[in-house]
């Protein structure tokens, strides 16, 4: 059975592009009031315009998920605007690929800050409201890299995504029964997003581009469909993990 999500309220981080933007559009089309959060305000405004033109409802929030004050400020505005929050999509993430002996420690720290701490910050800011409501649904974007370590260059990214998968599972165990909050960990393989562009190591960048020419990556909207599928499941059904790949990706 599929339940309507019309009228629900969502917060999506990393909404300025890729999976976040595509999911905002799909949820809005299903009648969800979407709060789109990211650092790039101009991108958000363009997306908000697109959603509104299609008859949807959107609130754009310039937000840095690594900054707790910024996150709390944004969530406060969301609650003031809509009065509740039903769906949190922790989607902001970066993937600068490099091997450890390059010691790009700035990139390592940025991945830990955005991919892990960003998820924790936003979850901490939103959960009190969901607990009070005794309902809610948290989605976290992990990755196939949160299930296995591909090989040279992916150590830190994989570590952050293993963390997201582990946190999702632990959170689910704690808040499912106690607070009636569902937790879904989405684990995509190759998706056409901006992720490869974040790699500064030229050799790794070439490898990523070469792989992308061999396998037709998924569209961001394919992942958005999976999010909508899990969100539309009846309240007693929690899609805990969903692993989704391009058909050709081994």
């Amino acid at each position: 059975m599929i339940m309507s999500i019309d009228g629900k309220v969502a917060l999506i981080t990393g909404a300025s592009s890729g999976i976040g933007a595509a999911t905002a559009l799909k949820l809005a089309a299903a009648g969800v009031k979407v709060t789109i959060a990211a650092r790039r305000a101009d991108r958000l405004e363009a997306l908000k315009t697109e959603i509104v033109e299609k008859g949807g409802e959107a609130l754009a929030l310039e937000m840095d998920v690594t900054d707790m004050a910024s996150v709390e400020h944004g969530v406060k505005r969301l609650i003031e605007t809509y009065g509740s929050i039903d769906i949190l999509f922790n989607n902001a993430g970066i993937m600068p690929v490099s091997e450890i002996d390059q010691f790009k420690t700035g990139e390592w720290n940025a991945m830990v800050d955005i991919n892990i701490k960003g998820v924790l910050n936003t979850t901490a800011a939103v959960l009190p409201q969901m607990i009070e409501q005794h309902s809610g649904h948290v989605f976290n974007t992990s990755s196939i890299a949160g299930r296995k370590v591909f090989g040279p260059g992916f150590a830190v990214y994989s570590a952050t995504k293993f963390a997201v998968t582990a946190f999702s599972e632990g959170l689910r165990m704690e808040v499912g029964r106690k607070h009636n909050i569902r937790v879904t960990c989405i684990q995509p393989g190759g998706v056409t997003t901006e992720l490869p562009e974040q790699t500064t190591d030229p050799d790794k960048r070439r490898q990523l581009d070469a792989y992308r020419s061999q396998v037709r990556f998924l569209d961001s909207s394919d992942i958005a469909d999976a999010v909508v599928f899990a969100a539309q499941a009846p309240a007693h059904v929690n899609v805990a993990e969903l692993f989704i790949l391009p058909i050709e990706q081994a």
């Binding site: 899609v239 805990a240 058909i247 990706q249």
Partner: peptide, 14 residues
């Protein structure tokens, strides 16, 4: 093009 390879699905209160 989309291969959903694994879905873990539980009762919300399990």
């Amino acid at each position: 093009r989309v291969a959903i390879n694994e879905i873990v699905v539980r009762p919300t209160d399990q």
